[in-house]
């Protein structure tokens, strides 16, 4: 195995250039180094101007998502050695506006997330003194998978529908809506239904399935969306035959 590897890193400095360019750096390639370690080496030792986000380096903060050789990846969980002999192309996540180098603007997701009301909605709350709402492990299993989303945005980068139609609400936001819809403590499904059943909601999804394939936390947003489509269809049929909630 080569002890060094080349990184071709996308650069975009809005004050200097109108288009992204690539800079090439050679970094050490020990067995336990991930792409992010390579970038840190560049920043610390070669070129302090390289800009990217990172924090936990253990796959839970969701900061370090980038395109690695064209695939959306958490760079803290992508070993350099797996790409030997290289070179490795590192680019900002696809389908997002690029702010600088490897940093994208995820404001669009943050605004969409609010629209699906990702919190527990209840008509009436029982007082704290009455203790917890009972929820069996089986009931928790209904939504647990969808609660594992770390908002890393890899699914948005993988989704061609989002790339083509930026109004599409997108995989993670829908999965999080489902996370609450399927929670036995929640009563907000009807409110979320209005947003989810719009054209830019679930029906925008044409089931490419890439979101699920790239998800580092096995959230399966594609499954969440297809599941909700079925729910929405059944609701529509019910509403047709039984108007006014018979």
């Amino acid at each position: 195995m080569a002890d060094r590897i080349k990184l071709q890193v996308a650069r975009y400095r809005p004050e200097r250039e109108a288009e992204a360019t690539f800079d090439e750096y050679e970094v050490p390639c020990p067995k336990d180094w991930v792409v992010l370690d390579g970038l840190n080496h560049v920043k610390d030792r070669i070129d302090g101007t390289l800009a990217y986000r990172w924090s936990c380096r253990m796959g839970v903060c969701g900061s370090c998502g980038m395109m690695v050789n064209g695939e959306p990846k958490l760079t803290c969980a992508t070993f350099l050695a797996d790409y030997a002999p290289g070179p490795i192309r590192v680019e900002p996540l696809r389908n997002f506006p690029v702010v600088r180098d490897l940093i994208v603007d995820i404001g669009d997701f943050m605004r969409k997330l609010v629209t699906v009301r990702p919190w527990i909605v209840r008509e009436e709350e029982k007082p704290l003194s009455a203790g917890e709402y009972l929820q069996t492990p089986e009931q928790m299993d209904d939504y647990k998978q969808y609660s594992m989303c770390i908002n890393c945005m890899l699914c948005y980068a993988a989704c061609p529908v989002y790339g083509l139609d930026p109004l599409f609400i997108g995989p993670a936001a829908i999965a999080l809506a489902q996370r609450y819809n399927l929670d036995s403590r929640d009563e907000g499904a009807a409110e979320r239904h209005r947003v989810l059943s719009e054209h830019e909601g679930i029906w925008g999804c044409t089931f490419v399935g890439e979101c699920t394939r790239v998800c580092p936390k096995h959230v399966d947003p594609a499954g969440a969306i297809q599941r909700y489509k079925l729910t929405a269809a059944v609701e529509t049929v019910k509403a047709f035959f039984m108007p006014r909630g018979a």
Partner: peptide
């Protein structure tokens, strides 16, 4: 305990006993 319970109200998926209690 009340703070942790409040988090339960907000949806935190605390692990449960088989009967549904925290």
């Amino acid at each position: 305990p009340e703070e942790l319970l409040r988090l339960e109200r907000w949806g935190c998926p605390w692990n449960r006993e088989a009967d549904g209690r925290i």
